[in-house]
Amino acid sequence: MADKPNNAVDFWNVNVPAELQTQECPDFLTYALENEKDRSILATRDADWHRLSWEEAQRLTLQNRLDLFERMPSDLRRYREYCFNLERKYGSVMEFVVKHRLKWQNLEPVDKPFAVDSDMKILRNDWPYGIDPRIVHLVVWTKFELPAAPSSDADPDEDLSPETRAQIQAYVDEVFINVCGAENVIWFKNWKALKSIHSVEHFHVMLFNPSDDFVDRVTGGDVSASEDAEIQKKALGGEPS
């Protein structure tokens, strides 16, 4: 690593109180030594970070620029520590999500896609992107596959098949748009390269300024890991309850 100016702060110490800063890069952030994008984010002060507006989030989704959805610097740091500890304790993030977030005993669907509620679960995104606080970021998890476009297409791993896209749209219309209005709902499925959890199918839904009652109803009162001390305790070494 190149020498830094005397007054510079190592990227892993940005947004960290002086008394908690370390000379060495923490294990959970060493990956960023080779990841220029995340290293740049982590080296940015939260005060200098630009939160995406609803209009910007809509535009990125419409343009399929999902790679531009990014977490705030301090949230990215917390997210990486969270995932690092999950992998050490549970073997994988997926193992924790399935057993302790989704509380599913298996990933076998009982019916065709979107036919029964037990094959799906809506939860808050545990570590949402750096967006307007009025935007609620949800994840719809499914036991059934959400097939990509046919292999003859240019980017088969980066988009959905027309049939799958239509099925998701119909579901989003029924569950979200009928209540919140089309102008207040966007959805997307991350490209394969952008997924942090590859073995459990899911897609993202963002709602602009929905009522708390509605969000509680569709999520069963779920609280995200980033806001729930008990979930973080499980990830950081405490015994699961």
Rank of each mutant, 00 (worst) to 15 (best):
V9G: 06
V215N: 00
L29W: 02
W12I: 00
K112S: 11
N7L: 12
Q105R: 14
T219C: 05
E201M: 15
F214Q: 01
N6P: 14
N190C: 11
Q63T: 12
H204M: 09
Q23C: 13
A32S: 06
I41G: 03
K121W: 03
A154R: 06
G220K: 04
S53T: 13
N64D: 04
K89W: 07
D213L: 09
D46L: 08
Q169H: 15
I135H: 10
W12P: 00
Y129E: 13
Y79K: 10
F28G: 01
V179M: 15
F188M: 04
P240C: 13
D173A: 08
N64M: 00
V139W: 04
S161V: 00
M206F: 15
A18D: 05
A229K: 08
K121Q: 05
N106R: 01
L29E: 00
G130F: 10
V136G: 09
E55V: 08
A154L: 13
E55M: 03
H202V: 10
K99N: 12
A235E: 08
R124S: 12
E227S: 03
D213G: 06
P128H: 14
R134C: 12
E227W: 02
E70P: 00
D119G: 10
T22S: 15
W49T: 02
T61G: 02
I186G: 13
H202M: 12
P26L: 08
R88I: 09
V93L: 02
L68Y: 00
P113L: 04
V185D: 12
F208P: 07
R217K: 14
M120Y: 13
F144Q: 06
Y79V: 01
S226C: 09
W54C: 03
K189T: 04
E95K: 10
H137T: 03
I197W: 02
L123G: 08
W49E: 00
N178T: 11
D38I: 03
I231L: 13
A2N: 15
A235G: 12
S118G: 06
A170Y: 11
V98M: 06
H204V: 11
Y79S: 09
F188K: 03
G220H: 12
D212R: 11
R71D: 01
K234M: 10
K103D: 06
P128Y: 15
E108D: 14
D48K: 01
P210Y: 12
I135S: 12
Y31D: 13
R217F: 14
D173R: 09
V205C: 10
Y90R: 03
V9H: 08
K143C: 09
H137I: 02
Y90E: 08
T44W: 01
H100N: 07
A8G: 02
C25E: 13
L207C: 11
T142S: 15
D46N: 11
P73C: 04
A193V: 09
A229C: 07
V98I: 04
R88F: 07
D75M: 13
R88P: 09
S199C: 15
F96E: 04
V110G: 04
R71P: 01
E108K: 14
Y79D: 07
I131D: 05
P156G: 01
